[in-house]
Design a protein around this nucleic acid. Structure first.
Lengths: 338, 338
DNA sequence: TTGAAAGCGCTAACAA
DNA sequence: TTGTTAGCGCTTTCAA
């Protein structure tokens, strides 16, 4: 294992010179640089990141905190892609990404302390669900760079975050239905505790208004979570004196329940009833008919989170930035009336 | 930010003493220990991991390499749980976990070099798909601890790995079918390039033999990957002069295709044809009827991978260990003939 | 049981 | 453009 000293000796220069070359300092003659680079290659030299980190007082590491229990907010496929987005940016800057689960041995604050004060990382990306005013105050006090995934609620100071534009998603969902000729568009929404569900519903309502369609409370169900609930709620909708001719569901699971109810009522999708779902999961392609969804570029969300984080790291005075990722409709058979 | 010196001064001891306490050295009087621990708490002291690492010549970090492109072998939900399993063990030992994607800016070897020679990590867990004899030789030469996820192919030297017991899975699948009274059990397998698919099929064949059932080549299709292929293959099976009364599918996607074919033929699941799938994905619970699957404890696989890795780290002379995670049948409606 | 001091591999201020 | 040197925060050997 060659060290900077070995390289310096072998190249006949001082270790400061080698250090300067490692750090791309311009104050080095081309001749020396070539010579040293050659020696580095020969010795298979890789700078010791621990020594660099100690000297620079930074870990060359970014941490992604996840909450494994919080399956709904950032569940499997999503999380995976967010992570990959972050990773792409982090590694392209020559840092490592460390991941840590908040539900592990250490408690939330402890693990953050451990990561931050133990100099294990120089920035974190964390789910908005764990943010609170005290934590924000603390992080700001020590000027520690952080970015939140998801817009945090009830935070007084402005902070940096990225989120899906769920309001836009709700609007797009309704507008897609309208464009396909549906008139009476119902809504089976997910749990209203989650901000993103509230935003989606607001988007739906706003689009109703924009399009001069009357809002009918009996068309809107909230707080559903399981296939079974989707099924039951859809059944009720079908039984209405004037049943809807389309339904927007909060997620794929609800949709599957709703589809079952529609099939049992011998109604045709998409002819009699159109159906559209938030969250573009693999299952949307597999069901019969395939499911039109509101799609999200989760990878991009990771990329933006990381970019914002580096912006703060590079310039601690940078203005806070909030970034919304656009949604788009992934059209499939379930709304293709034609 | 308190350093070891601050603690030493505040406690009126030398920094060696503080260091000994950090490292749980027994050669410390209880009195001193209590005194120093109290000061540490007061100063909110956390040891600088970079300095410790530099001094100890180890990063206190374990790396998980993933191959984001290789969706089939270790795809989303799986990977997520493996990671969580690893993480649980890693953090309980006070180390960090870093993840790195092989498809990133750096190439495979470069990123490994970068991680290892840059002292960024003291052990890696990596997918068997990237293993080759040269890499094994190199890692062994420098005695770098590593564990493979999945049994590697064509590796000459014995190495440490964990894998799902896919052979057992294949046997269990067939035996479950038999126990439910099915007689003519077909098999729609995944791509045979993948070792795990070969093993599953071998298990199926072995179980046939164990149970004195004749192997019928026309009942076995291989190399399918999409819903559509599942559909077509199932259709062919149904058209056979003596069609099967049960089918085992290589994954959930194939199963959905097969179910479609069965439904179109107006056959009942599970009465006329039973269906069972490898891989217990969320979708298995959502389809109608719900799908019996071969389930896998992927979390446990991560735990074992990490445990083996630490065994090697703690004792470089340890014998190589291969660990197989048992499968089990998750019974649902699709095979419930009763 | 404790302390003094050297050293881990790098960076950066200062000098040349 | 390059070299010398002190120092980053910890561990560990040796001595007391």
């Amino acid at each position: 294992m060659a060290s900077i000293n070995d390289v310096a000796k072998a190249a006949g220069v001082s270790k400061s010179t080698v250090s300067r070359i490692i750090n791309d300092s311009p104050a080095i003659s081309d001749e020396t640089r070539q010579k040293v680079l050659k020696v580095m290659k020969e010795l298979n030299y890789v700078p010791n990141s621990l020594a660099r980190g100690l000297s620079n007082q930074q870990a060359f590491t970014v941490a992604l905190l996840i909450n494994i229990k919080d399956v709904k907010s950032f569940s499997n496929p999503f999380f995976y892609e967010v992570m990959h987005g972050i990773e792409t940016v982090v590694y392209s800057r020559g840092l490592c990404m460390i991941t840590a689960n908040l539900e592990n041995t250490l408690k939330q604050n402890e693990i953050l302390n451990w990561l931050i004060y133990g100099k294990r990382t120089q920035g974190v990306i964390l789910p908005s669900s764990i943010m609170n005013n005290q934590l924000v105050r603390e992080l700001k006090k020590i000027r520690f760079p952080f970015v939140t995934i998801g817009e945090p609620e009830g935070i007084k100071e402005p902070i940096d975050w990225v989120d899906i534009n769920n309001f836009q998603g709700g609007m797009q969902a309704l507008e897609h239905m309208i464009s396909q000729g549906y008139k009476r568009i119902a809504y089976i929404g997910g749990e209203q505790v989650k901000t993103f569900n509230k935003k989606r519903l607001s988007g739906y309502k706003a689009a109703l208004e924009n399009n001069g369609i009357e809002y009918k409370p009996e068309y809107v169900c909230e707080g559903a979570a399981t296939k079974d609930e989707g099924y039951k709620l859809m059944k009720q909708l079908i039984k209405l004196p004037q049943p809807p001719d389309a339904v927007i569901c909060g997620d794929n699971v609800l949709s599957i329940g709703a589809m079952k109810a529609i099939n049992e009522a011998k109604l045709n999708i998409p002819k009699d009833i159109g159906i559209l779902s938030f969250d573009n999961m693999p299952i949307a392609d597999l069901v019969e008919p395939s499911l039109t969804t509101v799609d999200i570029d989760v990878f991009e969300m990771g990329v933006q989170a990381a970019n914002i984080l580096f912006k703060i790291i590079d310039n601690p005075e940078a203005r806070q930035q909030q970034s919304m990722i656009s949604t788009c409709i992934k059209m499939r058979e379930s709304t293709c009336r034609e």
